[in-house]
Amino acid sequence: MSPDSARSVVVVAELRQGELAPVTWELLACARRIAPAAGLALYAVVLGQAVQEAAGRLAAAGAAVTALQGPGLALYNGQAWREVLAQALPSLRPAIVLAAHTTQGLDFAPGLAVRLGAACLTGVERVAVQDGRLLFGRPAWHSKAVAQYAAAAPLSVLTVQPGAFAAEAPAADQAAGSLEVRPAAPLAGSVRFLGLRRAAEQSADLTQAQVVVAAGRGIGKPENLALVQRLAACFSSAAVAGSRPVCDAGWLDYSRQVGITGATVSPQLYIACGISGARQHTAGMQGAGFIVAISLDPQAAIFNLADLCIVEDLTLFIPAFLAECTSAPA
């Protein structure tokens, strides 16, 4: 592959309360893997009202940064993001645009891709070069397989799964990239933004517990929560948690939900009971010391990140385990 320095991989930084969100550094790490392999220049864009400082930090890490600043960009707004990015990106001649696989990236990336005539893939977890072509891997088929795609369009807009690429410290001899600040004035969109609202608090005992026993949709009915509670009672410091469907059904309070839209826990022991292992759930528990998973489905994705896999019906297995705990000598 001949280096084509005229084309680029562009990272769209994500900000939280004006600060660079940690996932931005992961996007940069992903871009660093792609850029040399595909002979692309590395750029970053930062959108906001006053983002010079954040943009400066990215430039110091070696990216050539364009800060797109304007009063209409104070808070995330999908209409404005799509409009400003669709205007600014073509001058950077991107082959690949990387956004975060977050509620923000998922909101603007698909529409942006349509506007730019680009291919769009969300939740990308792997990047590989094969026969001179870039391949992007993402989970599919209920997370039971990894689908590898190549773009059939000159531009691809990707959202990258948080946690899939480790943020890297810049090399000691890293030269700083350039920083250009451009004013951006999106048209007044038709959507009215009425502000942010805090909806849920997390349960402290969940994040502090040494053992978390989590119930998934596989418990089947709310009565079976008692089994999960009895399992938790075998341990001295254990909390009961749930996957989102269990909380959606009202079987457990939302403060007990583990995952990207719930709590992140890293107990010494996590026991997943009837949980299939969707990324949105596992992102909240993959840091646990020891993971035990019980599922009827031998192919459940949860088994790929478990230390111990138990393919059984939890309504039979948990009672068997409880009997074992009470009868056998400690």
């Binding site: 072509r133 391949l135 397989a145 990894v146 689908a147 590898q148 795609y149 773009a151 059939a152």
Partner: peptide, 9 residues
């Protein structure tokens, strides 16, 4: 705009 080139476990 996309080509599925492989499916891995």
């Amino acid at each position: 705009r996309l080509e599925l080139v492989a499916v891995d476990p």
